[in-house]
């Protein structure tokens, strides 16, 4: 050990707290870390790239004809919803990653460093947003290759993407809570899929609501997945759905309802998560 081990002279004055700009820079660094992890962990990339594409192909070509009469039409109706569903599954990585940090002691190491207390969480959620954007882009690109067409304009498309990212941001807190409470990363995944499968499938993502029994419709109609899927369809397809069972007259109502859901989820789960995390560390 040569120069590297020697101690630097004590700094004259240590700063008493982390500034906002510094905290944001630390958040960026921690987000970078989460993205770089994917490079060494190709199965994760597969999870949020190949798996959703498989879903699109499966539903379009296997079930599409039976549900909508034609695979092409079905793709148009299903893709916005599949993107929403995939978004929810991807948020589970926030909890899995956090749980790994907690169980491996990395979270303690980060807390022992002079970094903003909120930076580790913010970094994870920012990285999640990058993964979300990538996944949405990928699904839209694959959809377009298969014949999906945007019936509105770029502004509406961006609004749909923005709405999904806002919802993902809020829903990440559910994932954080699960990540903090679970004993190990596998349990986070298990819980995520067990809870998310019914919530995402019992919606109008894959089939129109009015084809379902009455008691189920009640749930489907209030399910935020349905509401967000409606908003996305309206924003991406516009008038193209006119006359179909998926038609939503205006994007305004479902978009506002989605934002309301996002606000409620964040208001409940963000404080719960922070409380659970304080208890655990």
């Amino acid at each position: 050990m040569t120069a590297a081990a020697t101690t630097a002279p004590p700094p004259a004055e240590l700063s008493p707290r982390v500034g906002l700009a510094e905290g944001l820079r630390q958040t960026m660094t921690l987000a970078w870390r989460t993205i770089v992890q994917v490079r060494h962990n190709p199965w994760e990339l597969g999870d949020f790239s190949i798996q959703p594409i498989m879903f699109v192909l499966l539903f379009t070509y296997v079930f599409g004809g039976a549900i909508a009469g034609s695979t092409g039409e079905y793709l148009t109706f299903a893709l916005p919803g599949i993107i929403v569903m995939n978004m929810l599954f991807i948020t589970m990585y926030v909890g899995t990653g956090l749980n790994i940090d907690l169980t491996k002691g990395v979270f303690d190491r980060l807390r022992s460093l002079p970094v903003a207390r909120w930076a580790p969480m913010a970094g994870r959620i920012l990285a999640d947003q990058v993964k979300q954007a990538w996944s949405i882009f990928l699904l839209l690109a694959v959809g377009m290759i298969l014949g999906f067409r945007i019936g509105t304009d770029v502004a509406s498309l961006l609004a749909a993407v923005g709405l999904m990212l806002v919802f993902a941001l809020a829903f990440s807190w559910v994932s954080v809570l699960v990540g903090v409470l679970a004993k190990d990363p596998e349990k986070v995944q298990l819980f995520g899929f067990t809870a998310l499968f019914p919530v995402t499938f019992v919606s109008n993502v894959f089939a129109p609501t009015d084809t379902m029994p009455g008691w189920l419709q009640k749930f489907v109609e209030v399910n935020p997945v349905t509401i967000l899927a409606d908003a996305s369809r309206a924003l991406m397809l516009g008038d193209e759905t006119t006359g179909t069972q998926w038609h939503v007259a205006s994007a305004t109502t479902p978009a506002l309802q989605s934002l309301l859901w996002a606000a409620v989820i964040a208001a409940v789960f963000a404080p719960l998560s922070v409380w659970a995390l304080r208890r655990r560390v």
Binding site: L14, S15, K104, G105, V106, R109
Partner: peptide, 14 residues
């Protein structure tokens, strides 16, 4: 935190 380096019981590396 600016003064201390911590190495825990479990190698806390990513």
């Amino acid at each position: 935190r600016q003064l201390v380096g911590l190495t825990g019981q479990y190698a806390a590396v990513d």
